[in-house]
């Protein structure tokens, strides 16, 4: 940093990135805006760092006026990928500073994979999640969700009660005591939408809820809601997608 003196440093708000950005900002005695949802540069060359504040009620735009560099982190997937623009002619400089082992407080002895062999699916990273709850009635019925998920290139998630009933493994649980997910599409099948579940998925881009009970709280957060028998609806949707895909491939 001290060699190149950049105006702006952007870091991905991944697990590693968050740790790194904070440490670097502290070391350089500059500001850092974490988890920005929007970035821009104004005519004075200031980085406009926009992020939700006060519980998501307002969008704050933060400037780093007096110190340099200006630093921000951005969560993965919050900004859409723009089309490739070949008119920009920046240069990527790869810098590999020599690091002395003495400077690192931590020494890696061994890398242990904490995922269970083979069966692991990281629902938190999925772009499409088809989730089932108590309304699925049995373990076997999750097959229809798997078919839909396969068709959409997504994974199957679950509510706590389905995990409790032994229908799905605990790694698939979405909600307060499970995983928090924010996929592009979340399809909730037979999930009434207890608050414990809602808080784990309500920031998904599009939520589609399928439930028999039209009073179910899941419909309060759903982008699209279908009231009806999921055992008829889900296979029908799967078939329709298949049909369209075949048509597209042919056409």
């Amino acid at each position: 940093m001290r060699k190149f003196k950049p105006e702006i440093i952007l870091v991905g708000a991944t697990g590693l990135g968050r740790d790194l950005a904070g440490a670097v900002a502290t070391d350089l005695a500059t500001g850092l805006t974490a988890d920005c949802t929007g970035l821009d540069i104004d005519d004075r060359g200031f980085l406009l760092q926009t992020r939700p504040a006060f519980g998501g009620n307002i969008m704050a735009t933060i400037l780093t006026e007096r110190t340099r560099p200006q630093m921000a982190t951005v969560r993965p997937h919050v900004m859409s990928l723009p089309a490739k623009d070949s008119s920009h002619t920046g240069v990527v400089i790869r810098e590999s500073p020599a690091i002395d082992e003495v400077d690192i407080a931590v020494k890696m002895l061994e890398l242990i994979d904490d995922r269970k062999h083979g069966q692991d699916v990281d629902i938190a990273a999925a772009e499409v999640i088809v989730s089932g709850g108590r309304g699925m009635m049995s373990k076997e019925n999750f097959k229809i969700l798997q078919e839909l998920a396969d068709e959409l290139g997504g994974v199957v998630g679950s509510s706590r009660s389905a995990v409790e009933a032994g229908w799905m493994p605990v790694e698939r649980q979405v909600g307060q005591t499970g995983k928090t997910v924010r996929p592009k599409i979340y399809i909730a099948c037979g999930i009434s939408g207890a608050i414990q579940h809602l808080v784990g998925m309500q920031s998904s881009d599009v939520i589609i809820a399928i439930n028999r009970d039209k009073q179910a709280p899941i419909f309060e957060v759903a982008t699209y809601g279908i009231v009806g028998d999921l055992f008829k609806i889900v296979p029908a949707v799967t078939d329709r997608i298949k049909e369209l895909r075949t048509k597209n491939e042919q056409g």
Binding site: F54, G55, G56, N57, Q176, T177, G178, I195, Q196, V199
Partner: peptide
């Protein structure tokens, strides 16, 4: 592990689910 959410949410937003105070 599952208490981490509760602790963070309650500390930051003063409710167990982390819903916006508004």
């Amino acid at each position: 592990d599952e208490l981490l959410n509760l602790f963070e949410n309650t500390e930051q937003r003063s409710n167990p689910w982390g819903i916006a105070p508004a």
